[in-house]
Amino acid sequence: MMTKNPVETIEVELGIFIRRFIAATTNKKVGNLDRAAYLLLHQISTHGSAGVKALAEEFQLDMSTISRQTAALEQKGYLYRIPDPQDGRAYSMQLTDTGTAELALNKQARLEYLTKHLQDWTEEDQQRFGELLNKFNCTF
């Protein structure tokens, strides 16, 4: 039996993984935040306040998309704007207490979901998989 090209395997398995994870965290409502909101709040929580331009660069999205997403999160009370003292038109986004609490609840729900599905994995396998996912994400 001939082994598939490893890149082919990664491409297919990654597609399946993305589809299943999005379905699980969206359709089954693992937490109240959609993927985009969760990632934006997580980024700001982890790396501190950030402007729309920096967030757009981080997520490789256009500024109008990030502007819409941050505006929606601001409207829900999860983010607030910090004016830039050097440029009156620019601002950074910061988490509110409500945003911090919502992020924590969603993170806990996601961790519980993943823990349940990884319960048969060894801690070493989980560690290695996390390291490889991180390495993979850093290549982009």
Rank of each mutant, 00 (worst) to 15 (best):
A54V: 06
K53L: 09
N137Q: 14
A71E: 07
D120T: 13
W121E: 05
F17S: 07
M63Y: 08
F21M: 08
N134G: 14
T25W: 02
Y113C: 07
R20F: 01
E58M: 14
R128W: 09
R81D: 01
V52C: 06
I66N: 08
D87Q: 12
L95M: 11
A71M: 08
D97H: 15
L40T: 03
A37P: 11
A50N: 02
A109K: 01
M93K: 06
Q127S: 10
S64Q: 10
L61E: 10
Y91S: 05
L133P: 08
V52K: 02
T65C: 08
E131L: 12
R19L: 08
K28L: 07
T96M: 02
I44Y: 09
K135N: 11
I82T: 14
L61S: 08
K29V: 00
P83V: 13
A54W: 01
Y91L: 06
L73G: 02
T100I: 14
A23W: 05
R128D: 03
R19S: 07
L105H: 00
T139N: 15
K28M: 06
E74H: 04
L114P: 00
Q127R: 13
K107T: 10
Q75A: 15
R128C: 12
A71F: 05
N106Y: 02
A90E: 12
K76P: 02
N134Y: 14
A72Y: 09
Q108E: 05
F136P: 02
N27W: 09
L105V: 01
D87K: 09
E57S: 14
D87R: 11
D125Q: 14
A56K: 13
Y80W: 04
L73E: 03
Y78R: 02
T96F: 10
T25D: 01
Y78G: 02
C138N: 15
N134V: 15
S92H: 07
Q69R: 12
L40A: 09
T100A: 14
E57P: 02
S67Y: 06
D125M: 14
